[in-house]
């Protein structure tokens, strides 16, 4: 089908080398802070503060052992997984269906409505966090996973909706019409035809949503305090605890612990991620 075709780019060998060099340069700039974080997490406190910084030192797993055996850190890691997965799935379900409606259903003002939902993302999260906290307290929902999942949906659903809308718009309308003549309802056509075709797009969108939820700090900070707290809150706690000076080893070790699952996850799903991104690119 046309929307799956790609044109291979033609380029010379010299052009290729320049591209590779540029790619490496950009990667170094982006990855150096991560590298430095990982490096620091293996250092003893004395090595961290040496000036100039040392690249060669005797590594230690001391900080990792300390923090990975702490129940609160493990609990927070579990919370982060639950919240990221829950809000990823929930926002995909709601956002994809909303995006489909925006792409297909002819209602007056649908475009305006869609735009309004998108504009809601322009509201600074801090302006929402406090009212959200008040509402959650009234409902007795503070410090619960579901609270964070719902809170994250406020920015994930518009995101998913707009990404998926442009994806669905690029699919020919006749696919669903044909399915509807063949015996499907509108919902049947969506789930049996559109969803399977859109799987790469849906999955890559969900992965991005999960990563956004994984790293979210502000809402987690305001809406949770003990049971449902996530990793970013834990990092913020360590960073804010400066009574004995900044605990860089702990900060970088917990930071690394937070990043590693995302990297593993991204590697596992990279086939989908790349396919989804490329599809989006060729479809405009």
């Amino acid at each position: 089908m046309a929307f799956m075709s790609r044109t291979p780019a033609r380029q010379g060998v010299a052009g290729n080398r320049v591209r590779i060099a540029a790619g490496i340069a950009v990667s170094v700039i982006f990855l150096f802070p991560v590298f430095w974080m990982v490096l620091t997490s293996f250092k003893h406190q004395v090595d961290i503060f040496t000036n100039p910084p040392k690249f060669l030192f005797s590594p230690t797993l001391e900080t990792y052992v300390e923090y990975m055996t702490r129940a609160d850190i493990n609990k927070r890691l579990a919370n982060t997984i639950i919240v990221a997965f829950g809000s990823g799935v929930f926002s995909l379900l709601v956002g994809a269906m909303a995006g489909y409606a925006l792409a297909r259903v002819r209602i007056k003002g649908a475009a305006t409505f869609g735009l309004l939902i998108l504009l809601s993302r322009g509201v600074p999260p801090i302006a929402l966090a406090v009212p959200m906290f008040l509402v959650a307290r009234k409902l007795g929902l503070t410090d619960k996973h579901i609270t964070l999942i719902l809170a994250y949906s406020t920015f994930l659903v518009p995101y998913v909706m707009w990404l998926m809308r442009s994806f669905f718009v690029s699919l020919p309308r006749e696919l669903e019409e044909s399915a509807m003549i063949d015996g499907c309802s509108r919902y049947g056509a969506f789930f049996k035809i559109i969803v399977p075709i859109s799987l790469p797009g849906l999955i890559s969108t969900m992965i991005f949503s999960m990563i956004l939820a994984w790293e979210e700090l502000l809402f987690a900070l305001v809406l949770t305090n003990r049971h449902a707290t996530t990793m970013p809150v834990a990092i913020a706690g360590i960073a804010g605890d400066t009574i004995n000076g900044a605990n860089w080893a702990a900060l970088t070790a917990v930071g690394t612990i937070t990043v590693v699952p995302v990297v593993i996850f991204a590697l596992l799903v990279q086939k989908w991620l790349i396919k989804g991104l490329a599809d989006g690119a060729t479809k405009g």
Binding site: L175, E177, M180, I181
Partner: peptide
């Protein structure tokens, strides 16, 4: 009456074949 209950079949200009199904499943879908 909904399209599915009209007992009609339609051939579209762009064919509208289901890209994720093989020919057999496309033909047997209805």
């Amino acid at each position: 009456v909904a399209p599915k209950d009209r007992d009609i079949a339609m051939v579209f200009q762009n064919y509208a074949l289901y890209p994720h199904m093989n020919v057999r499943d496309n033909m047997g879908f209805a």
